[in-house]
């Protein structure tokens, strides 16, 4: 499933979650999301980068240039304090939604 097919704004949570494990560059984030969702999400750069730039402008992420494992100059994103708070909020929200939907599905 391409990430665009999900609810708008859904990409925020996996990105924040990924970056809570440590700084990462664009391709790394994309690959990591693919791994942790076992290939359910395929994040295309056309949707990834606008979200990254928006979250950076919102102050949830900070970015700096660094050296990649393959010796390329890459832009690394890391979670800021507000970003961590945001992640917490997003998780809560998601849990609630998930719970609600599950109960709706299991309702007899």
């Amino acid at each position: 499933m391409a990430a665009e097919d999900l609810l708008p704004g859904t990409l925020d949570l996996p990105i924040l979650q990924t970056l809570s494990l440590g700084p990462q560059h664009g391709l790394g984030i994309s690959r990591r999301i693919g791994q942790i969702t076992a290939g359910t999400f395929r994040v295309m750069p056309g949707s990834l980068f606008p979200v990254l730039h928006r979250m950076e402008e919102q102050g949830w992420l900070a970015a700096e240039w660094g050296e990649s494992e393959t010796n390329r100059k890459a832009k690394y994103y890391r979670l800021t304090k507000p970003g961590q708070r945001r992640l917490g909020k997003e998780k809560d929200r998601w849990d609630k939604v998930a719970l609600a939907i599950r109960s709706a599905l299991e309702a007899r």
């Binding site: 560059h25 393959t70 890459a74």
Partner: peptide, 12 residues
């Protein structure tokens, strides 16, 4: 630079 790096890394 950022997007090009992405492309390069993908190619790598």
């Amino acid at each position: 630079q950022e997007i090009r790096t992405y492309a390069d890394m993908l190619a790598d």
